[in-house]
Design a protein around this nucleic acid. Structure first.
Length: 752
DNA sequence: GCGTATTCCATTTTT
DNA sequence: TGGAATACGC
């Protein structure tokens, strides 16, 4: 147990105190992950079976990292620990238990797009105005309700909620909510919130003693980032931990100062209440920061001191004084981007940093664009996190929709997506008729299209639909005997998706073809490869159903596979939580941006600004050595020029920690009247970065050593196919394993 | 019913 | 600004 020596005394106590409730208040960079992983390792060494340990995190990445680190300490036993995100762990349990609460085990998961589309349809059929009942707004109200354990009935009885809706000119949300729930259920679908809400239902109703089963199973529970849990999550945990005779072996880790998900119903109150709920609670405070230098830690302390209501702690560091914090001022957003990138290049040279040592953090994803342009101009490789991810791409969603309907024909959103893709003459008019008919009879859309001839559609359309149904049934029949990959590749082939994409001869269309190929590769590795199961808890479930339910919970944060080029990282501050970088740029430090306009205008502005401040605190504390803040006096937003003052947050840092060579100037600097925005040069998109030069297809032969732009070094196993359709099977060194790549699209350089 | 042109409209953060 | 809903011509 030599690893215990790597811990300071408080960390050690937190690790070895395994019985009874424990709360660890962990400041930024205080070795929180280390404590969590060693605690789990310690539990296993004490003889606790790994499968009795449940670890809940917020991101797959955090779960994965933890598993890897535990594996290093205790070996393969780590594989049997239940570690994952709230959503993925509960999705997995629901897969086994859903039938007990009236859902099929093949339930679909609706992403937010699906959910919003359901809402829009309801709003329309209810004869309400889709402009007023904006689907995003309605969805967030419904989501908030679920996260506060308010069902439609309770919503209807909740005067405050109804009043608030009325004030927002949306008095009928309660009605939409009820219909939404009904519709999802009929479609055998759960949205993101349902993955938690339905687990709560399951435990609450407790059919066949299912709650006791899991209470017995999970003898030790650990929860990471507890400050970001909402009422629903806290309640689920409580159900598992608090019961007569329970040893209450729960360990929560969190930092009230880093609570940044209030908009999702997260509440610091959960942390503050924890002591009340668990009278035997032992609290450990980790206050030494092992990440950042003195200036950075002090700046963070200065800022957070302005907030009301917080758990007392004093974060300190022994990492030395470090560099004072630099502030960059620019006239425009483009100039800001340019100056940031220039500074980045300078730091890279001076401190011998790699690109990957840098992060550019912003408040809103829309800000990434100018920095991308700037980085492209300087030929600096970068990666943008957040925004459009692989699984959000239309072509990927289309294929997944076919698979979803194959697994769960009642999945209405998926069915609507594919019924006329590729176009087969089933347009909006016919679908409206069928939808109406099905709705009137109270049957699912899938059942509706079976008898669509009753709803007065044309012969032609009827024939198309008949063909479509026959095809889908064929896929469904293949489900039992074939692997997820076989089903998927058959779907892609039979549906003619590739044919449809290839008929367009643009670069974008080629990319789409490549994406579909990549998706199929992904499914293949899911089937064959143990590594890809992010959950890692149930590697035997290789069904298509299991694939679909896993894949929707992945984000691009989790798919960093085979990264071989060192890249600057661009992401929102929210996404940066839990990460660290040698040098951090926090950009767009302006009023109305950071803090956001929403926060400044909200009816409880004080609390909203406090949350923005915690967000800024999170941002500052990502930096290990160098922190740079930047802002622009003017910037384009929504196509218009906007002028903002510099952020109040910068003034909250004592000048002692700032590099005063560039003082903050609060007065808005307005450019002269004749000022014109520089037209941004369009840099061609598919430009290979660095010195990467793709080789001609002919050079890629079996046995060749190659370098792929994304997957890194590998060896060609075989090449098949003819002419321009050659496909190479390549074994990559970098964890991604074997991949089949279309040579005409793959960016491959032969190295030997 | 389909594809394209046009207008319109909303802009926070995400599992 | 750019993505999505709508209008319009075939």
């Amino acid at each position: 147990m030599g690893y215990l020596d790597e811990l300071n005394n408080i960390q050690k106590s937190a690790v070895t105190h395994i019985n009874g409730p424990v709360m660890v208040i962990a400041g930024p960079g205080s070795g929180k992950t280390r404590v969590l992983t060693y605690r789990i390792a310690y539990l296993v060494e004490q003889g606790i079976p790994p499968w009795e340990i449940l670890t809940l995190t917020f991101t797959n990445k955090a779960a994965k990292e933890m598993k890897e680190r535990i594996t290093k300490v205790i070996g393969d036993k780590a594989n049997n620990i239940w570690a994952g995100t709230f959503h993925s762990i509960f999705a997995k349990i629901l897969r086994m238990e859903a039938t007990k609460i009236g859902y099929p085990s093949d339930f679909s998961i609706y992403d937010s797009q699906d959910a919003k589309s359901v809402i829009t349809e309801i709003v329309k059929t209810q004869g309400l105005d889709t402009k007023i009942y904006n689907s995003s707004a309605v969805y967030s109200r419904i989501s908030l309700a679920k996260n506060n354990l308010i069902d439609p009935q309770a919503y209807f009885e909740d005067g405050d909620r109804l009043l608030e809706d009325k004030q927002r000119k949306m008095p009928y949300i309660y009605k939409i909510y009820a219909l939404y729930v009904k519709k999802c259920k009929r479609a055998g679908a759960m949205d993101f919130d349902d993955l938690l809400y339905q687990i709560h239902e399951l435990f609450d109703k407790n059919p066949e003693g299912v709650l006791e089963k899991y209470q017995r199973k999970f003898k030790y529970i650990l929860v990471d980032e507890f400050q970001d849990t909402n009422q629903l999550q806290a309640s689920i945990i409580q159900k598992l931990v608090k019961f007569p005779g329970s040893p209450e072996n729960i360990c929560i880790v969190g930092d009230d100062a880093q609570s940044i998900y209030g908009f999702r119903g997260a509440s610091i109150q959960n942390i503050l209440d924890f002591e009340k709920d668990y009278p035997n609670l032992t609290v450990y405070k980790l206050e030494q920061n092992y990440r950042s230098t003195h200036f950075i830690v002090q700046a963070a302390n200065d800022v957070i001191a302005r907030n009301r209501r917080q758990l007392k702690k004093k974060i300190f560091t022994e990492k030395g004084e470090g560099h004072p914090i630099r502030i960059l001022r620019a006239m425009t957003d483009t100039e800001e981007a340019k100056r940031v990138v220039d500074m980045l290049v300078e730091q890279r040279l001076r401190h011998h940093y790699e690109n990957e040592d840098f992060a550019i953090l912003y408040r809103t994803n829309a800000q990434s664009r100018v920095f991308e342009e700037s980085l492209k101009n300087k030929r600096i490789p970068y990666k943008v996190y957040g925004g459009m991810s692989f699984y959000d791409r239309k072509e990927v969603k289309d294929v997944l929709a076919y698979l979803r309907v194959t697994v769960n024909p009642k999945d209405e959103e998926a069915l609507k997506r594919i019924i006329n893709y590729p176009t087969r003459g089933v347009g909006a008019t016919s679908m409206a008729k069928i939808s109406q008919g099905a709705e009137a009879e109270g049957i699912s859309l899938w059942e509706g299209i079976q008898k669509c001839y009753e709803y007065g559609i044309t012969k032609r359309t009827y024939n198309s639909i008949k063909e479509f149904i026959a095809m889908m049934k064929m896929f469904q029949e293949g489900l039992q005997a074939n692997s997820a990959y076989d089903v998927a590749s058959r779907v892609v082939k039979m549906v003619g998706i590739m044919k449809d994409l290839k008929k367009e001869k643009t670069v974008e269309a080629q990319n789409r073809v490549e994406n579909v190929t990549e998706l199929l590769d992904g499914i293949k590795s899911f089937v064959e490869d143990d590594e890809v199961d992010e959950l890692n808890t149930n590697i035997d479930d290789k069904s298509l159903r299991s694939y679909l339910q896993n894949v929707i919970l992945l984000t691009d944060m989790d798919t960093d596979e085979g990264e071989n080029v060192s890249r600057v990282k661009l992401m929102s501050v929210h996404s940066a939580k839990g990460l660290e970088f040698k040098s951090v740029f926090i950009v767009g430090m302006e009023e109305n941006l950071f803090p956001s306009m929403m926060a400044l205008r909200s009816k409880d502005a004080r609390s909203a600004i406090d949350e923005e401040r915690r967000l800024f605190y999170v941002a500052i504390t990502r930096a290990e050595q160098i922190l740079t803040l930047s802002y622009a006096s003017s910037r384009y937003r929504y196509g218009k020029m906007q002028y903002n003052n510099s952020s109040r947050f910068m003034e909250e840092i004592s000048p002692d920690y700032l590099d005063m060579s560039t003082p903050i100037n609060r007065a808005a600097v307005r450019p002269n009247k004749g000022f014109r925005r520089q037209p941004t040069r369009q840099v061609s998109k598919a430009q290979p970065l660095g010195n990467f030069k793709p080789s001609p297809i002919g050079q890629v032969v079996a046995g060749a050593k190659i370098l792929h732009e994304r997957f890194g070094n590998g060896k060609v196993i075989s090449v098949d196919g003819m002419g321009t359709n050659k496909v190479a099977t390549i074994l990559f060194e970098s964890g991604v394993g074997e991949k089949r790549l279309m040579l005409k699209f793959a960016k491959i350089q032969v190295t030997g």
